[in-house]
Design a binder for these strands. Structure first.
Lengths: 212, 212
DNA sequence: GCACAGTGGAGGTCAAGATCGGCGTGCAGT
DNA sequence: ACTGCACGCCGATCTTGACCTCCACTGTGC
């Protein structure tokens, strides 16, 4: 976990990068610092130092701390919703849809845990701009699932949304727990377990009425 | 939603309270402000104003902002875990246990939404002291359910924990969604829906192997 | 050899947490 | 009942810390 990309050259020659590459590098450095320290504790000095540049450079690429954070957030928010959408559209078998959605969550947590923590453990949820984006992610995931539930079970939208939020919460919390616990269970096993839980939970809902 | 307890007396005569009553009033005011604004955005001035006193009084009762927040947190953390424990011990029927647990979450969200948001939407999870307490709550709930799952299904502890985290996440997220959506669905209905989802999901796990 | 673009470190500003001298009120003793 | 005392409370202030810009330097193209 040293500096990003081209490495720290604080003592060596300062390398001149094209703006595009520099911007990506700054974003990567910012992501590491934001995830490690949280938004408030992260100082712009830390981010600049992490990237191996000085603060003015940072401010030549981003107007302020908030915009930098939002840029990062936007990138990943899109990615998450897109993955769930893909999981829904990739097949017509609902059981497979559940599996794919759960797998999407675990993949995301496994491969991009930094992005996950950036979005779901943000300490800025009170800020309207951030709140809007984070809620948009959850709403987006819930909405994607809701539509499928409605069309396949016929329950009301309000009920379907509640069920969808439960499923999303199960996948999200389980994935988070799996990550926090140090990936004790093999990933495929964990996915299968949570997928089974979710599928058994939702599968019999077309019945609508409760049978004992 | 004006000032707490004895009302705002900014213009009138300042009332002198015994220390114990003043402390409780300050805690209530702090809770309102912390929930409404989040930890970082909440200023000690706001809390003092909300309580109708001045800042020095606040600092005569609590050493600092963090201690004030932790005092609040501790109160509610205990309450949540206790409720889930009660739900587990109240009966031996597992289906009823699931219902009771879900009802516990919804009750908590319904009746003490402020406390819920204080704990689960905290913007201080990066702070070790806060993180420890919040994780302790989730771990506590998960652990309570895990034991039941293990003794009744025989799956390994790691798997049971994962399942438990999924169930907790479902109840938590659904309750949160229900609250955020303005309680559109009647509480009893929402509880029944989520309980059914959870119960159907977990009920057939004793089989262990998957039947189509 | 010279102009120039871009870097690096020092400083301004402001918000928010934490604190000091005065004030008014209720009570004890005579 | 009157006076001195003790205590809780308030307005105004200090300081820290973090975001955001200005002077000296270095390496390059003509």
């Amino acid at each position: 976990m040293t500096a990003v990309g081209n490495g720290a050259q604080t003592a060596g020659r300062p390398t001149r990068l094209p703006r595009s590459a520099r911007r990506k590098q700054l974003l990567a450095a910012a992501q590491e610092v934001f995830v490690a320290q949280g938004y408030h504790a992260a100082a712009m000095d830390d981010i600049a130092e992490r990237a191996g540049v000085s603060k003015p450079v940072l401010y030549q690429h981003f107007p302020g701390k908030m915009e930098l954070y939002l840029a990062l957030l936007d990138t990943h928010c899109d990615a998450i919703v897109a993955k769930v959408h893909d999981a829904m559209r990739g097949t017509n078998d609902n059981k497979e849809r559940v599996s794919a959605s759960v797998r999407a969550y675990f993949d995301f947590v496994d491969h991009e845990s930094e992005a996950f923590r950036l979005v779901f453990e943000s300490d800025l949820r009170n800020d309207p701009a951030v709140r809007q984006r984070v809620e948009r992610v959850e709403q987006g995931c819930i909405a994607a699932i809701t539509d499928t539930i409605i069309s396949d079970t016929g329950v009301s939208r309000a009920h379907a949304e509640l069920l969808a939020s439960g499923l999303v919460g199960a996948a999200e919390t389980a994935a988070q727990f799996w990550l926090a616990g140090g990936r004790q269970v093999p990933k495929a096993e964990a996915e299968a377990l949570v997928a089974a839980l979710s599928w058994r939970g939702i599968a019999s809902f077309p019945l609508q009425g409760e049978s004992a």
